[in-house]
């Protein structure tokens, strides 16, 4: 019998098991990542480096609005999502009779795509949608108001933010519920024994303990918010340009993979920047990572 084989094999086993996944991710994630940067910064004819595509992207009519709107929508939606999700999570955490059903209901949007969410809310916000029907019926409005027109960008953004909040609160809530479940119940009770009010308990006990979960939730939400696409497209077409949407239009409409790649790279950089920022500012004291 070969004396050494089992030993070597045993040591190599975990690597062999991880290898397919690593190789897969290398081909289908790392390679395209590098490719995106190359496409966005290389001259298609000479192959040399060029800022041509980036310049073309930046001078496009839609570019700055897309940056602005993406950031605006993110800045509006993310805090709302966190607050709403926190309320849901705290409600679940009281374990009132029926809290499991409540949790399930709140989690439903987990399975709803951004495209479906956009179409769902379209049925409310469109000119002949449910919102207008109700407002007219109840006498708030005399005639239907077009929430989704280019004349009222604020309303458009509002509709998009609402839809995003509706759809993506669920994932934040799941993170927070999971985080709350990890906390021993005695913390809150101890605080209550010392006479802390509900609000004080929340502010000084629960929230600090929830910090890691909040951090995770914020990172996920922000990164996903930069990928905002189908919601916006279904509700506004290109009236509210966003970065992911521009990537799509440049690729499919203008058939220019280079500028599209420049947009993709920008999304990538912005995501990385925000993750890095969160990790730096929200790192709990006294912990290495």
């Amino acid at each position: 019998m070969d004396e050494h084989r089992p030993r070597v094999l045993a040591a190599a086993t975990p690597y062999l098991l991880v290898l397919p996944a690593a190789a897969y991710l290398a081909v289908f994630v790392v390679y395209p990542m590098a490719q995106a940067i190359r496409l966005g910064a290389a001259d298609p004819h000479t192959g040399g480096w060029t800022l041509e595509h980036v310049r073309r992207m930046a001078s496009d009519l839609y570019f700055w609005p897309a940056v602005r709107y993406t950031l605006w929508i993110t800045a509006l939606a993310v805090p709302l999502q966190v607050v709403l999700a926190l309320s849901m999570a705290l409600l679940v955490n009281t374990r009132f009779p029926g809290h499991t059903v409540f949790l399930y209901v709140c989690a439903i949007p987990l399975a709803v795509s951004d495209l479906a969410a956009g179409l769902i809310w379209l049925s409310l916000f469109t000119e002949r949608g449910y919102l207008n029907a109700a407002l007219v019926q109840w006498g708030v409005l005399r005639s239907p108001f077009n929430f989704l027109s280019h004349e009222h960008p604020a309303w458009l953004v509002g509709a998009i933010v609402t839809t995003e909040v509706w759809r993506a609160t669920a994932i934040v809530m799941v993170v927070l519920v999971a985080g709350l479940q990890l906390l021993p119940r005695d913390y809150a009770e101890t605080a209550a024994v010392f006479g802390a009010s509900w609000w004080q308990t929340l502010r000084h006990v629960l929230l600090p303990l929830l910090r890691p979960s909040l951090q995770t939730a914020l990172i996920i939400r922000t990164v996903l918010a930069f990928q905002l696409f189908a919601t916006v497209v279904t509700l506004s077409g290109r009236l509210v340009p966003v970065l992911a949407g521009e990537t799509y239009f440049w690729y499919t409409l203008y058939r220019n993979p280079h500028v599209a790649s420049a947009y993709a790279t920008l999304v990538l950089l912005l995501s990385a920047l925000f993750v890095w920022g969160y990790l730096r500012t929200l790192r709990p004291e006294g912990e290495g990572t």
Partner: peptide
């Protein structure tokens, strides 16, 4: 490996799709 998984989780479909389409 775990860090790699975490990092790839952050890579958006938005950034992958165009270069992959070209490839």
């Amino acid at each position: 490996v775990q860090l790699g998984i975490l990092a790839t989780k952050m890579f958006p479909a938005t950034a992958l799709a165009v270069p992959l389409a070209v490839a």
